[in-house]
Every structure is written in structure tokens, then in C-alpha cells.
């Protein structure tokens, strides 16, 4: 009973296509393959490294930057340095929101602290920490949602 004259959407394929991400003008590669997004699992479909306009100097301890639209992630800084967290809830994959103290998921109410640890279920697994790099010393920060790093990692 699939739709009568419906044309299928862009289905997962092996080829990666490039496009320009409007706001930042960042080139991103698309891999279109739906997968689970729990900690340790393969990255979400649009996962491609994103280039942010932030630098090591522009992010002070306590600051949080929302890059959910560009790459399903948040960029944060604490006393130890800069780190990135996926914004994808480990329960059912909704996009979590910054609450001012931590992250909350609007779908079923999971909560995480600012390090991504679960403080309230139903989620059981923490938010993944993602690899953050400087493109060049002092230059803009690049985050790769496909690369999970240990929670203590800081730039």
C-alpha cells in the first residue's frame, strides 16, 4: 500500500555530495544513511565536520554556542578548555536544548548536565563528546561529529 504515484525521496546512497551551508558558507559533505545515534554509535546522517567562526580566544569558560542547525552539536568551554557535545538525545534522537544549566530534551524529558552526563531519564547514555580542532594555530575551530572523544578531552 505504498503511495500510488509517489516519487521516492532521496534514498540513502553511497555517494557524498557537496553543498554550501548558507549561513556559515561552510563546505560540508553529506552522508545520507540513517543510523542509531546513541553514544558510541555511528554518527547521524548529516554528520560532516563543521567549521565554526569561533576561535580558542573567542570562547570563554562558561560559554555555550548552539550549532545544532549546522551540525547537531553544541560548542562549550569550561575552566579546562573547549569541548563539543552532540545535540542528539541518546534516547530517541530528538534535538536537545540548552537550559542555562544543562541540556533538556523536549521529546520525553531527558536531562543532561553541561558535560553531557544524564541527570534525568529516560535517556541512559551520555551525550557524545566530539573532536574539536583548530584549523591552524589561533584559527577557527572545526568540529567533527563523526569522531567521538573521551569526556575529559579539551582543546
Amino acid at each position: 500500500m505504498s503511495p500510488g504515484d509517489a516519487r521516492p525521496g532521496a534514498l540513502p546512497g553511497p555517494d557524498r555530495r557537496t553543498f554550501v551551508q548558507g549561513l556559515l558558507g561552510v563546505l560540508a559533505a553529506l552522508a545520507v544513511s540513517p543510523r542509531a545515534a546513541a553514544a558510541g554509535d555511528p554518527p547521524p546522517p548529516d554528520a560532516a565536520p563543521i567549521l565554526t567562526p569561533e576561535t580558542r580566544a573567542s570562547l570563554a569558560a562558561g560559554q555555550v554556542r548552539d550549532y545544532r542547525k549546522q551540525g547537531d552539536l553544541f560548542l562549550l568551554a569550561d575552566a579546562g578548555g573547549i569541548y563539543a557535545l552532540t545535540s542528539i538525545c541518546t534516547h530517541r534522537g530528538c534535538s536537545v536544548r540548552w537550559s542555562g544549566e544543562g541540556f533538556t530534551c523536549p521529546c520525553h524529558g531527558s536531562e543532561y548536565d553541561r558535560l553531557g552526563a544524564v541527570t534525568h531519564g529516560p535517556a541512559r547514555l551520555p551525550l557524545r563528546h566530539l573532536a574539536v580542532q583548530e584549523v591552524e594555530p589561533g584559527g577557527p575551530l572545526r568540529v567533527d561529529p563523526a569522531v567521538t572523544v573521551p569526556p575529559g578531552t579539551r582543546l
Binding site: 532521496a10 551551508q21 553529506l30 546522517p45 548529516d46 545544532r68 530528538c94
Partner: peptide
């Protein structure tokens, strides 16, 4: 489809489609 891709979104692939 704004429910299948993780992240409560349509996703770049569907937007270009």
C-alpha cells in the same frame, strides 16, 4: 519527513531534494 533523521529536523539531504 521531519521525524526520521536524528536531531528533530528534515536534514540537509531532504532539503536539497
Amino acid at each position: 519527513d521531519n521525524v526520521s533523521a536524528p536531531g528533530s529536523k528534515l536534514g540537509a539531504a531532504q532539503l536539497s531534494w
